[in-house]
Computed example of a mutant assay.
Amino acid sequence: MHPESASTWPAPAKLNLFLQITGRRDDGYHLLQTVFQLLDWGDAISLAPRSDGRIQRLGGPPGVAEEDDLSVRSARLLQRATGCAVGVDITLDKRIPQGGGFGGGSSDAATVLCALNALWGCELGEDALAELAVQLGADVPVFVRGRTAWAEGVGESLRPLDLPGRWFVLVDAGVHLSTAELFQAPELTRNAPPLTMADFASDLVGRNAFDAPARARSPLLAELLHALRARAAGGLTGTGGGCFAMVDTKEQAEALAGDLARFGRCIVAKGVNRSPLHDRLEAWRAERSAAPAGA
C-alpha cells in the first residue's frame, strides 16, 4: 500500500453544562450525571497513513510524552484491535487548553479512533469504537458517538440531547486543580438526588459538584466565577479549572469575552448537537463514494 496524503480532522471541545455526583459504585468509581455540550471549535489533527505500519507523532502538546499522548495511544489501540498493518503520522494542532476540563485529550483520542477507522478501512461500527474508546478514558465515548448528550454512570451511559444553538465563552485562567484532590474534598456533595433527562433546564446550567472545592482552593477561580455569574449562566466545566458562560448570541459572547479577558484566555464558540468530526466523516465518505473507480 502506498502512503496517502495527509488529511485534517476536527477534535471539538466540550462543556459539562452541569455535573453532579449521585453515589459511588462498589469499585470506588463515582456515579455522575452531566450534560456534555459539544462545540464547533477545538483541536485539529492531521493524519497521514503510512505503509510500514509505524505510528508516530510529528507534532503534539508540549510536555506530553509520545507514549502518554492519547492520540498516539488511540491509534495503537485501533491497530491492535483490528490487526491493521497500516501506520500513520499524527500532527496535532493543539488549541484546547490542557487540563481545563474542556475535553481536549479525550476528543483528540476519539478523532484519531474514528478517522483512522475510516482511513485504514477498518470499518468498525460505532458501538465497537465506543467500546475501544472507554479504554482510553471515561469521556472519550461521547466524542466517538458525536452527539451532545445526557450522561450517567461513570459517563458511559449516553442519551442524545437536542439543545438550542447557544453561544459560549470558554475561560482558561491557567488554574490547574488535582482531580483526585477534588474528589477527596470534604465539602464535595457525593449523594445528590438523581435527576432525569426531562429535569434538565437552563437553571441547572453551571451547577457543578466541584464548585465549592475549586473555590476553596483557588481565590482566582472564586473571583472569576463570581464575575462570570454576575453576567450570565455558567460555571466550572468538568473537574478542571476551566470555566464557561452561556449566552444567546455571538455578539453577547464576544462582548462577555472582552469583559472576562482580564482573568485569562477567552474563546467564543457555538454549541452544536452533532460533532464537527461526524460532519467531516460523512463528507469524506461521500467524496470517496463519488470518486471514479481507481481514482
Rank of each mutant, 00 (worst) to 15 (best):
residue 1 M to Y: 07
residue 1 M to F: 08
residue 2 H to S: 11
residue 9 W to R: 04
residue 9 W to E: 06
residue 11 A to D: 14
residue 11 A to L: 15
residue 13 A to T: 14
residue 15 L to H: 01
residue 17 L to G: 11
residue 17 L to F: 05
residue 24 R to K: 15
residue 25 R to T: 07
residue 33 Q to E: 13
residue 34 T to D: 09
residue 36 F to C: 01
residue 37 Q to G: 09
residue 38 L to I: 14
residue 39 L to H: 02
residue 39 L to C: 01
residue 44 A to N: 03
residue 48 A to W: 03
residue 56 Q to C: 10
residue 56 Q to E: 14
residue 60 G to S: 12
residue 61 P to D: 11
residue 72 V to Q: 05
residue 74 S to Y: 00
residue 75 A to S: 11
residue 75 A to Q: 10
residue 78 L to T: 06
residue 82 T to L: 11
residue 85 A to R: 15
residue 88 V to W: 07
residue 95 R to A: 02
residue 96 I to V: 15
residue 96 I to R: 03
residue 97 P to T: 13
residue 97 P to L: 03
residue 100 G to R: 04
residue 102 F to D: 02
residue 102 F to I: 06
residue 103 G to D: 10
residue 103 G to P: 13
residue 108 D to Q: 02
residue 108 D to C: 00
residue 108 D to H: 01
residue 110 A to S: 02
residue 111 T to V: 06
residue 112 V to M: 04
residue 114 C to M: 11
residue 118 A to K: 01
residue 120 W to P: 13
residue 120 W to V: 07
residue 131 E to M: 07
residue 134 V to T: 10
residue 136 L to D: 04
residue 137 G to H: 04
residue 137 G to C: 06
residue 138 A to G: 01
residue 138 A to M: 00
residue 138 A to E: 01
residue 143 F to G: 00
residue 149 A to V: 08
residue 151 A to C: 14
residue 153 G to E: 03
residue 157 S to G: 04
residue 157 S to N: 10
residue 158 L to N: 04
residue 160 P to V: 08
residue 160 P to L: 09
residue 167 W to Y: 14
residue 167 W to D: 04
residue 171 V to M: 12
residue 174 G to N: 06
residue 174 G to P: 15
residue 177 L to W: 08
residue 177 L to S: 12
residue 182 L to N: 08
residue 183 F to K: 03
residue 189 T to Y: 08
residue 189 T to W: 03
residue 190 R to Q: 12
residue 190 R to A: 13
residue 191 N to H: 13
residue 194 P to A: 09
residue 198 A to I: 01
residue 204 L to T: 06
residue 204 L to G: 09
residue 205 V to D: 07
residue 205 V to M: 11
residue 208 N to A: 09
residue 210 F to E: 10
residue 214 A to V: 10
residue 230 A to S: 13
residue 233 A to Y: 14
residue 233 A to Q: 15
residue 234 G to A: 13
residue 236 L to N: 08
residue 236 L to C: 09
residue 241 G to T: 06
residue 244 F to C: 10
residue 245 A to V: 05
residue 245 A to S: 04
residue 245 A to P: 08
residue 246 M to Y: 00
residue 246 M to H: 00
residue 246 M to I: 00
residue 246 M to R: 11
residue 248 D to H: 01
residue 250 K to E: 15
residue 251 E to L: 04
residue 252 Q to Y: 00
residue 252 Q to I: 01
residue 253 A to G: 09
residue 255 A to K: 12
residue 259 D to Y: 06
residue 260 L to E: 06
residue 261 A to M: 08
residue 262 R to G: 12
residue 265 R to K: 14
residue 268 V to Y: 04
residue 271 G to D: 07
residue 272 V to A: 02
residue 273 N to E: 02
residue 274 R to S: 12
residue 275 S to M: 08
residue 276 P to H: 02
residue 280 R to N: 01
residue 281 L to Y: 05
residue 288 R to L: 14
residue 290 A to P: 01
residue 290 A to S: 13
residue 291 A to S: 15
residue 291 A to M: 04
residue 292 P to T: 14
